[in-house]
Simulated scan of single mutants.
Amino acid sequence: MALFTTGEAVAVELPIARIPTRAAAFLLDLMIQLIFGTAVFFLCLWALFLWDADSAWISTMLVVVLTLTLIGYPVLSETLSRGRSLGKMALGLRVVRADGGPTDFRHAVTRGLAGIVDFWILGTGLIAVVVSLCSPNARRIGDALAGTVVVHDRSRLPFAALVLPPPWLQGWARQLDLTGLSDELAVAVRQYLTRFRTLTPVAQDQLGRALVVTVCARLHTPPLNGYPPVQILGAVLAERQRRSFPPPPKPDTKAFQRAA
């Protein structure tokens, strides 16, 4: 298991996929790539034969087919399925960002291009195995460059505990510069808020005041007087949470009126 901290300061534990499972998924993908590459090669070869093309066209076609097979397949499959190739689907694996979020085309392209170094330079995948063994999260070169990790996705993930801000502190929180609030400190604040009801009154006050002083120092703002720590910390974390989620798009009322 590895601990990931999301952009909303939610600490999530995910099971890391190790070399045996990833190797089995890779072999399944390799079989699919061989079938796909062979089919495309003979189809293109038949078309070039009908066109009476020379050897230069055949060499070009071979390079294109190899590129589509070795790079295009993993990039396309991981982009369309948000981090899962067919082999990973069969083994219950998924590629996620280093913060536990979903990957996109940029991550898939980086991993696909780096796969040339990981798997195909020596032709055995030895580089990927050695680098994964040296990494605590079993990351190969492609994962390190793309900022990704391969995890098991069949375990149920916990829901994020969202924070509701005190209405009387919303205006104050929206004026804060939250760039100084690190992920580690935000996780500590969230843990305090979620465990608040289980703490003794003394612990609630002492831990809360210490966190308020630390948070306000990082945000370069004086601590508020007259408000309990749980409200101040809740307002700060709720504002950070609000900025992490984009606002929903406004409905096009004119289009609706035209349709009506």
Rank of each mutant, 00 (worst) to 15 (best):
T124R: 14
L145A: 14
F105K: 01
A144S: 08
G125Q: 03
V131Q: 02
V75G: 02
L126E: 06
L126W: 08
D104I: 01
M89V: 07
R106Y: 12
L93A: 02
L133P: 10
L93M: 03
G87C: 07
T103H: 03
R139M: 05
M89S: 05
V109E: 03
G142N: 10
R82N: 03
D118V: 11
D104Y: 07
P74N: 02
P136V: 07
P136C: 05
R94C: 04
V117P: 10
I116Q: 06
P74T: 05
A114G: 08
W120C: 11
P136Y: 06
G123F: 13
A114I: 00
L122V: 13
V130I: 15
T103A: 07
T103Q: 04
S85W: 00
L91C: 13
M89N: 09
G112C: 12
D143T: 05
R140G: 10
T110D: 00
D104V: 05
G115T: 07
R94A: 10
L122S: 12
L133Y: 15
R111Y: 11
G87K: 09
T124M: 12
S81K: 13
T124I: 13
S135K: 03
G125M: 11
V131K: 13
S81H: 09
R84W: 03
G115I: 07
N137P: 00
R106A: 15
A144N: 10
E78L: 01
M89G: 05
G83A: 08
I141V: 15
I121T: 15
A128F: 06
P136N: 08
A90F: 12
S85G: 08
R106S: 15
S85P: 01
E78Q: 11
G147E: 03
V117D: 06
G123T: 13
R97W: 02
T124L: 12
A98K: 07
M89Q: 14
W120Y: 15
P102F: 05
L86Q: 08
R84I: 08
I116P: 12
K88M: 09
C134H: 13
I141L: 15
A138F: 06
R140M: 03
G87L: 03
I121D: 04
L91P: 06
L122Q: 06
D99H: 10
I127G: 09
D143G: 10
V75N: 02
G147Y: 11
I141N: 08
L91Q: 11
L126C: 09
T103V: 15
R84A: 09
V95A: 13
C134P: 00
T79F: 03
V95W: 00
T79D: 02
R111T: 09
L126Y: 09
G142D: 08
A144Y: 10
A144M: 10
I116W: 10
D104M: 06
K88S: 06
A128T: 11
L91V: 15
R82T: 08
A146I: 01
G87I: 09
